[in-house]
Simulated assay, not measured.
Amino acid sequence: MKIVVVDYGMGNLRSVAKAIEKVAPAGARVEISAEAGRIAAADRVVVPGQGAMHDCMREFLARDLRETVRQAAQSKPFLGICVGMQMLFEHSEEGDTPGLGFISGRVRRFADGMSGPDGARLKVPHMGWNEVHATTTHPLWQGIAPDARFYFVHSYYCQPEHGAATAATTEYGHRFTSAVAQANIFSAQFHPEKSAAAGLQLLSNFVTWQP
């Protein structure tokens, strides 16, 4: 098995690769690459991301990765992480940035002045551990406790056009989509590579997932 973490100059690529290596089956090879041929030859593809959406999209397009990644997203198990999830949508409010359009919907910014259940003001970005409420019986949730906690760092959240795409929600000021599943695509706003046992279980599920 060959798993490629797509390198477009943004994101904690090595942390993601190391976490996948830890849970991958014996004999699996995990690579970090921006080469179209290596991505096309992969059995599974991961697109991580962190930082500003417009910077991520600029670097992604500068490496001419759109078509290669589009084909991967249509044909093999595909995982997007954080901004790697946001990039799959049609448009982001961050920098008025067009996305890849693989998933219908938009990316919006958390409003300033949001309050939690106790009335305390919530900070933006949303940073730290929070509960993730699975809304589907997707294979990537196998072995993960209901309302498990995952690690987040983000100021923007995805709003799918079709509710059926939502695979999990999280509460922060309001309920937002924290994971999306569509055919052979699964994407998470949180960072599984930073989310201890629950995150490793999700990555383990991904490397054995057969959509």
Rank of each mutant, 00 (worst) to 15 (best):
H91N: 09
A36P: 05
Y8N: 03
T208G: 09
I81L: 05
G99N: 09
L79W: 01
E35Y: 08
Q86Y: 09
Q210T: 07
K194I: 07
S155T: 11
I81Y: 07
H126S: 07
C82R: 11
L100R: 08
E171I: 10
M85I: 04
Q189E: 09
G51K: 11
A24F: 02
V180G: 04
E21I: 10
R44G: 01
G84K: 06
T177P: 01
A196D: 15
M85Q: 08
I32Y: 01
A72F: 04
V46L: 04
G49Y: 02
Y151C: 08
A196P: 13
E161I: 00
Y157K: 10
V30F: 04
H138K: 07
F60M: 08
P48K: 06
R63N: 05
I144Q: 02
V132P: 07
I144V: 15
A148H: 01
E161H: 10
Q159K: 13
A148R: 01
V107M: 06
P98N: 11
V4Y: 00
P77L: 01
W141G: 00
A73D: 08
A42P: 04
S195H: 10
A40S: 15
I103P: 10
E31H: 08
T177C: 15
G101A: 03
P48E: 06
E67T: 14
N130L: 07
K194C: 05
R44I: 00
L122S: 10
A197L: 13
A179P: 00
G163W: 04
W209T: 02
F110T: 09
R149Y: 15
A19D: 06
A52S: 14
V69L: 12
E59G: 13
A34V: 09
G119L: 11
F78E: 02
M57Y: 00
L65H: 02
H91A: 09
A111I: 05
Q201P: 01
G143N: 06
F150D: 01
A188Q: 07
F150Y: 12
Q182G: 04
H138S: 03
A52E: 12
A181W: 04
T136E: 06
K22F: 09
G105R: 03
R58C: 14
A19W: 05
E93C: 06
A164R: 14
R106A: 10
L65P: 02
E35G: 11
Q201W: 02
Q71E: 15
E193F: 03
G9N: 05
N12G: 07
H91Q: 15
A196K: 15
A111M: 13
M57C: 05
D147A: 15
P139Y: 10
F186S: 00
G105D: 02
H154W: 12
T135C: 06
V83Y: 01
I20M: 03
M10E: 02
S104G: 13
L79V: 03
P98A: 03
A72K: 03
P146S: 06
K2C: 03
G163D: 15
A197R: 15
R109T: 07
F150A: 08
E131P: 09
H154N: 14
M114Y: 04
Q86F: 11
D147C: 13
E21H: 10
V5D: 02
F89H: 04
A164H: 15
I144A: 08
E31N: 08
D118A: 14
A62F: 06
D43V: 00
F206P: 09
Q182H: 14
E94H: 12
